[in-house]
């Protein structure tokens, strides 16, 4: 690395565990390359903290290529930071300037309690999926041939677009109501668009929405922030489709 690295001030949320009170703390990192990813910058900070005898900052991450949905972080007031269409692990330091102060907080939502530092508990998403995010078909290997039911390319593509949701929770974190409707709408849509999913469509949408409400997520007021911050570009149309499915299911 050349000497033209960035010197940065980091204000990071530190919280020992779910029970303790947290607070923002200030750290400095120097000579950060613009080619680093944001999480590599966090690695540098943590190595520095370990060397100094401090506790490193806990944050969720795993694949570091934007697909596992494990990483989160609210950076300068934006879920997954200032870039669009990326997760925090794909955010690069070239988005920042020498001398910047960067605020790093966990995803904030009543339904996502903090576990430690920047790590939050997103198990509410698990319970919503368990309430109906599946097609009831056994893995017998005796289903009909995969080409037995043709599906229009348009429907298949639209289902795929909905299915690309990585379950990171940026939609919830960025929504002023902490609504999970983009997440739930995407799953409901994927199945509603495919013939295989239609058999249980009514029960699925009712059960998933009921669980979503139970978990304490807010309602949708159509601000569209979720769509903008979603790293996978999941469309608001999915929320509209979920609402249609729910009305259809309710009047049946």
């Amino acid at each position: 690395m050349s000497g033209k690295g960035m010197n940065l001030t980091l204000k990071i949320w530190r919280q020992k565990d779910a029970q303790s009170k947290g607070k923002m703390q200030t750290y400095k990192v120097n000579d950060i390359s613009e080619h680093m990813s944001f999480l590599e910058m966090m690695d540098v900070l943590n190595e520095q903290l370990i060397a100094e005898g401090d506790e490193p900052v806990a944050f969720d991450h795993d694949c570091r290529e934007g697909i596992c949905g494990m990483c989160s972080l609210y950076i300068n007031g934006e879920a997954h930071g200032p870039d669009r269409g990326v997760t925090t692990c794909q955010l690069h330091m070239r988005m920042f300037n020498d001398g910047d102060t960067i605020y790093i907080e966990p995803f904030r939502a009543a339904a996502f309690p903090v576990i430690k530092d920047l790590v939050v508990d997103r198990s509410a998403f698990e319970r919503i999926q368990q309430a109906g995010g599946y097609i009831s078909v056994n893995t017998s290997g005796n289903t009909q041939d995969a080409n037995a039911i043709p599906i229009s390319k348009h429907a298949a593509d639209e289902a795929m677009d909905a299915a690309t949701c990585i379950g990171c929770g940026a939609c919830v974190a960025t929504c002023k109501n902490s609504s999970a409707m983009l997440f739930v709408g995407a799953k409901v849509s994927q199945y509603a668009l495919l013939p295989q999913g239609q058999i249980e469509a009514a029960d699925r949408v009712k059960n998933m929405v009921a669980q979503m409400d139970l978990e304490g997520f807010g309602n949708c007021t159509n601000t569209g922030a979720c769509e903008i911050e979603c790293p996978k570009g999941i469309s608001l149309d999915n929320i509209a489709r979920m609402n249609r499915e729910l009305i259809k299911a309710s009047v049946k």
Binding site: Y134, I135, V137, T139, S140, G141, T143, Q144, D145, A146, N147, P150, I151, S152, K153, A156, D157, A159, M160, A163, Q190, Y191, L194, Q196, G197
Partner: peptide, 25 residues
């Protein structure tokens, strides 16, 4: 031998594989 079953199974589960304009995989 079991590879073909996997595709049948996944389609039944709602995996949105790419399709051509005729609607087939």
């Amino acid at each position: 031998e079991v590879s073909a079953n996997i595709i049948d199974q996944c389609v039944a589960q709602g995996v949105p594989f790419a399709r051509d304009y005729g609607g087939l995989l």
